[in-house]
Each structure stands twice: as structure tokens, then as C-alpha cells.
């Protein structure tokens, strides 16, 4: 059996730009982002849906891109960590920076994508408990989550939840 079945041609909107990309049909969204579009901000920690490092948003919902087929993103809107900041850092990035909430930073892109969804949908200041629920699918091995949760709560006071 050849490891190379014919590729699919996919059209996605990634971080606000339309892209067309050819990829093998078994490719995950994470593989397409990292290997085809060179958006390496989304990380691979396990490749089986356990760690959350690969979290991106699909039509505004956080998903684990390592267990999402790229084909499922066909015609849909993908937001990755690279698309989070505008000219200025996103308030979450700014807060994480001020709180020293990223140690190695490997979990951070995924956490940002989960937390952004929380802040946007809450539309108000969030509690530590809400923040902990929102990132419960994102493992961090460095921080004990303390400063991450502080940063998310702090950012929510700045955004009123939305962007």
C-alpha cells in the first residue's frame, strides 16, 4: 500500500485570509496548518487529543486540530494563535506577558485559543473557576496554572469579554 493516496484540494479561511491547499485526505487540520501553511504556532504535544496544545478555533469554537481532519475545515473559518493579535497584542497575550504566565510557552497558544473563546462568549469579567473550566482541556506542565488563571481573569476585566 502506498502511503500516498491522492491529495484533496481544500479551501479554508485561515486568520482572515482565504487559502487553497492540497493535502493528503488523512491529514489533520494541525498537519495542514503546520506542514502545508507553515503556521507553526499551534503545537503538537500528543497528536491524539489529550493535551490541548494544538487548540485552534473553527468558526469561533475551540477544537483540537490534531484530531480534526483538515477536510472538516473545508470552507470554514480557522483562527490560530498567529491570528489572535492585531497591531497590538491581544489583551490575553498582554496579560499573560505581564503575569509571567508562560514559562516554556508550549501550551500557551492552545490556552490562548481556549481562553479567547471564554472571554468572547462571556462578555464580562470571568472568575477563576470559569477560567479553569475553559482551559481544563489544555495541559500545562510548567506553571501550576496559577499565573495563567490570574492573567485570564485580568484580561477579562480589560476586554469586558469581547475583543
Amino acid at each position: 500500500m502506498s502511503p500516498h493516496p491522492p491529495s484533496l484540494l481544500l479551501t479554508l479561511r485561515v486568520n482572515g485570509l482565504d487559502v487553497e491547499v492540497a493535502a493528503p485526505p488523512h491529514y489533520s487540520l494541525l498537519e495542514v496548518l503546520r506542514y502545508k501553511l507553515h503556521l507553526t504556532g499551534s503545537k503538537q504535544g500528543c497528536d491524539k487529543g489529550d493535551c490541548g496544545a494544538c487548540t485552534v478555533q473553527l468558526d469561533g469554537q475551540p477544537v483540537l486540530s490534531c484530531i480534526t481532519l483538515a477536510a472538516q475545515a473545508q470552507g470554514r473559518e480557522v483562527l490560530t494563535v498567529e491570528g489572535l493579535a492585531g497591531r497590538e497584542a491581544h489583551p490575553l497575550q498582554d496579560a499573560m506577558d505581564r503575569f509571567d504566565a508562560a514559562q516554556c510557552g508550549f501550551c500557551t497558544p492552545g490556552i490562548l485559543m481556549s481562553a479567547e473563546h471564554l472571554l468572547r462568549t462571556a462578555g464580562r469579567e470571568v472568575t477563576h473557576a470559569e477560567a479553569a473550566h475553559a482551559i481544563a482541556g489544555n495541559l500545562c506542565r510548567c506553571t501550576g496554572y496559577t499565573k495563567i488563571l490570574d492573567a485570564i481573569v485580568d484580561a477579562s476585566t480589560k476586554t469586558g469579554g469581547g475583543r
Partner: peptide, 14 residues
């Protein structure tokens, strides 16, 4: 208290 060197790069996925 200092912001970590290079932290923003990591947080922007760069």
C-alpha cells in the same frame, strides 16, 4: 518583576 524575554514571541506563535 520582569516580563520574560521572548515570551511575547512564544505567545504569538512566532
Amino acid at each position: 518583576w520582569h516580563k520574560k524575554l521572548g515570551a511575547m514571541d512564544r505567545m504569538r506563535g512566532l
